[in-house]
Simulated scan of single mutants.
Amino acid sequence: MQNVQVKAESSAEPIVYVVDDDEEMRGALLDLFMVTKKRATAFPNGMEFLQAADTNAAGCVVVDLRMPGGTGLDLQKQLISIGSKMPIIFLTAYADIPTSVRAMKAGATDFITKPFVNQDLLEAVDHAIQLDSERRKTDAEGDRIRGLADTLTPREKDVLWQVVSGLMNKQVAYELGISEMTVKLHRMSVMRKMESKSLADLVRKAELLQKSA
């Protein structure tokens, strides 16, 4: 098995996983990533990749579409099934439009036909890593906001959803069967616990909560 890490840097640095049954191609890709100062590791098939790789690592996967013992699409399905969100770039020697559409619909970030221009692949990898970084930031922010929401009492949550729906305090009081003063107190508590200094920020956080529900 060729499993060569071309840079021994911090594991926090994004990694490019190469999965290709062609040994010459694996070596060429590792060389390409080495000279462009990217951390990379290669595997000859999906099974060895899944056994040894950190599928939750920051980075992306560059995988050959057609490999004996399991295609790139098979690997994509397995990654999805285990909850991995690593971006995938497919390499293929065949211009198979239906397959490429299927791969992209399943979440692939790019589909590159061999032989390819090195710069095109490098740009695809940079784009995939950027998307992964942005997704991780969004996930982290979602986790933080869910943590804030968990500190709300049931009544405060009721007030939160009424307020972000656009209702005024008087309307919220009517809907919940409580006094307007009680609504005001709950609203102040919600703003404090959700760390929001404006209604716009509270609405943004509520939208993230709904998306992650």
Rank of each mutant, 00 (worst) to 15 (best):
F116K: 06
T55D: 02
K38L: 12
L65P: 00
V63P: 00
V117I: 13
F49R: 00
K38N: 10
I89G: 04
G72I: 00
K77I: 14
P87G: 10
I82T: 14
A108M: 10
I89P: 01
D74R: 06
R102W: 08
D74A: 04
D96F: 13
P98K: 06
V101R: 13
D64N: 11
A42Y: 04
A42W: 05
G59A: 03
K105E: 15
I97K: 13
T99S: 15
L50Y: 09
S84R: 09
M67C: 04
L75D: 05
T92W: 12
D110N: 15
M47A: 06
I97C: 01
F43Q: 00
L65R: 11
K77H: 14
A52F: 02
M104P: 02
T41V: 15
L65K: 09
P115Q: 10
D64I: 01
T99K: 13
L65S: 07
L73G: 11
I80W: 03
P98I: 06
A108I: 08
G70I: 09
A40W: 07
A40Q: 04
V117L: 11
L91Y: 08
R39P: 15
I80F: 10
S84N: 06
P115V: 12
V62P: 00
P44N: 06
L73C: 03
P44V: 05
S84Y: 11
D54Y: 05
N45H: 12
P87Q: 12
V63D: 01
V62A: 05
K85A: 11
A103N: 01
S84K: 09
D74S: 06
G69F: 09
K77L: 14
I80P: 01
A95V: 08
A95M: 11
I89D: 04
M47P: 00
M47Y: 11
K105D: 15
T92H: 08
Q78D: 14
K37P: 01
K38Y: 04
G107Q: 10
A93C: 11
R66P: 00
S84T: 07
S100N: 05
G70C: 05
M47D: 08
D74G: 02
N56E: 11
K105G: 04
G72W: 00
F111V: 03
Q78E: 15
I80D: 14
L75V: 07
P87L: 12
D64T: 01
A57R: 09
T36G: 04
L79A: 05
M67I: 08
G83I: 08
I97L: 13
L79V: 07
A108E: 07
K77T: 15
D54E: 07
I82A: 06
D64F: 01
M47N: 08
P98D: 08
T109G: 12
G72H: 02
F111L: 06
K77N: 14
T109C: 14
G70S: 07
K105I: 06
N56R: 13
I97M: 13
I89K: 06
V61Q: 00
L65D: 07
L75G: 02
P87T: 10
T41F: 01
K37V: 05
G70L: 08
D54C: 01
I82G: 07
G46N: 04
V62T: 05
A53L: 01
L65A: 14
F90N: 02
A93R: 09
N56F: 15
K37E: 15
A53T: 04
I97N: 03
R66W: 13
M47I: 10
G83S: 11
